[in-house]
Design a protein around this nucleic acid. Structure first.
Lengths: 339, 339
DNA sequence: TTGCTGGTTGACAGCGCTGTCATTACTGGA
DNA sequence: TCCAGTAATGACAGCGCTGTCAACCAGCAA
């Protein structure tokens, strides 16, 4: 049978309340008492009953990770990071996928979110793109006054968030391409709903302009982060009929970059000799395609970690309003110097 | 403020207990009363307090997905399936990654698992490979008498499980290769800890033997399901020094198959013209490499779904001892007929 | 000595729900 | 008409914990 707080109390010859104080690290317990209670709790392998504690405190010691993102890799890393932080604080992570994109009107979305959140009284939620900026979700969270941390949101808002500087990353990657001698550089945009899409685009444009290069309309193609959209974009950019082909293509995520490499291969174009390609995200895919993809590594794990950490923060610790984490440019084999 | 059962009871002019009966679909409530209570509960947007209910019933309405598997794609699909089933039954899924492989002795592993499970009193757990067959985990589960469903376990045991027939899938895929005229077929094995590894190998061997073909030692290479191990295996198999090269390579998962394609590309071998390649799992990767991978589709989502469904089963429904789900062979472009 | 302060401890109620068991309402047959 | 027998309902305790508040015990100044 599982030990209860009463068992520990009896064994230690103190009241339940004192045990409770020790377990919650509350002040005003004599050091000697504290040590004894701790020892006995360990001995009995006591661990508090979450339901009871939750009922008494109206906290659940649960935080939710809410997402509507088809990229398993992204979620999986966020998740790992978040769980890591939860464990340290005695919290647990429950995952709640939401399919909001195709679920009708704003009110229907609100209803859906509310149903999920009503049922499970979590202490906080982590929002991943594109939900970080979803009105319906934010509205319900506000209404139920649930704490939340947004990952890579489009605009600040009042809640804390964690993100990275997509624009600068994109800017630096473009500069790298320029340094390799490329001037005819095409850019494939991501999904419109994601905050990162316009930031990455902006960084690209900024670097091009600083280099005094015109950004041709024909060299900016809209994608949606999927492999298929990347392939379509590549076919368009590399078409024979295209008056002049780019010497480099900057796809704003790895899936689309992989598609570019694949299409180039099918068309008999050698990457990186006749076409340089780079991506964004550093998914496992990046190392798995050939040639290995030059890309930007996002600190995904850490984002999840920091987000959860903020949510499980004990109130006496300092709050973080927003955090911008560092990225890293991974130079691999898919970009070469222009001869 | 959130409505409680008392609010509903007052409004409906009945006792709490009657409301409780309605909400839990218990018998012995007049249809009229039932309908009225339901309506009022809806109106008040009442949803039960999980902690209170948990305290009263010593159930948590939580099930855990425990894994130690580096494949985000696999986990992510299992997870989706499981959550789906949970939602239908008012349960929630909490995810618990465990790093058991490198965590020392058996007893240390047991300790680690126990810590995680002690803290969170879940009603059931889903075990994914390679944990489905992990002694330490199974032991703790038994000790705490927590229900569990194992996904793709090596050997039956007494718990329910869901899986697919890896051996037959592998057998059929090999037959397909044979039908394309290949005889010199190499096989790359997966990670030793996974049940699937020997099953897939067995299916391959069976088909070869039935075709009256010898399976050369040199054509069986040990991998570990990682891209890197696949690449190493491919380099070994395709080495110039190798007296005779295979005309087809059957990698026992997609990552390794992708590695084979990549290595072949680097060595100037055309896939599928001079080398046919096939994989196993049908991960997104399979459609993303070029040429697209001929592979076996596992019903991963469904496995997660069925596993969770079994755990949240109300006791009056029928139990399923074990379920073997169907696979599908996905014919794509990485295998061609031997000329 | 008394009175006061502040650190330490415990008694008790109550969080929102369900299980048990008693009570009431209703049915059909004698 | 009355009485079982069953269906419908409710009163109440208690799940394991924490918040509140009162009680207690030094130690020290007056």
């Amino acid at each position: 049978m599982k030990a209860t707080i009463t068992d520990v109390a009896k064994r230690a010859g103190v009241s339940m309340k004192t045990v409770s104080r020790v377990l919650n690290n509350e002040p005003n317990v004599a050091e000697k008492t504290r040590a004894r209670v701790k020892a006995i709790a360990d001995e009995l392998r006591y661990s508090p009953n979450l339901a009871a504690r939750g009922l008494a405190t109206s906290k659940s010691y649960l935080i939710a990770l809410i997402y509507d993102n088809p990229s398993p890799n992204y979620i999986s890393h966020i998740q790992r990071g978040a769980i890591d932080a939860c464990r340290e604080a005695g919290y647990h992570l429950v995952v709640e996928p939401l399919s909001l994109a195709e679920s009708g009107t704003h009110d229907e979305k609100v209803g859906l979110v509310r149903t999920v959140l009503d049922r499970l009284p979590v202490d906080g939620v982590i929002l991943t793109p594109p939900l970080s900026d979803n009105e319906a979700v934010l509205e319900v969270l506000e209404e139920l006054s649930i704490k939340c941390v947004r990952i890579a949101p489009k605009n600040g808002g009042t809640q804390p968030f964690v993100g990275m500087d997509d624009e600068t990353a994109s800017y630096q990657m473009t500069q790298y391409l320029l340094k390799q001698g490329h001037e005819k550089i095409a850019f494939i945009r991501g999904h419109m709903d994601h905050a990162a899409t316009s930031l990455r685009h902006a960084g690209f444009v900024k670097a091009m302009q600083e280099a005094g290069l015109a950004v041709s309309e024909n060299f900016i193609v809209q994608g949606d982060f999927s492999f298929e959209s990347g392939a379509a974009a590549a076919r368009k950019l590399l078409a024979e009929s295209n008056p002049e082909r780019p010497t480099a293509i900057f796809a704003s995520n790895d899936d689309m970059a992989a598609a570019v490499i694949s299409v180039a291969g099918q068309m008999g174009l050698n990457v990186p000799d006749t076409l340089s390609v780079c991506g964004f995200d550093d998914t496992p895919l990046a190392r798995v395609v050939w040639p290995a993809l030059t890309t930007v590594r996002q600190p995904i794990f850490k984002m999840g970690h920091q987000a959860a950490k903020e949510l499980v923060r004990r109130s006496d610790e300092e709050a973080e309003k927003g955090q911008i984490l560092d990225f890293e440019i991974m130079l691999r084999d898919s970009v070469s110097e222009l001869k």
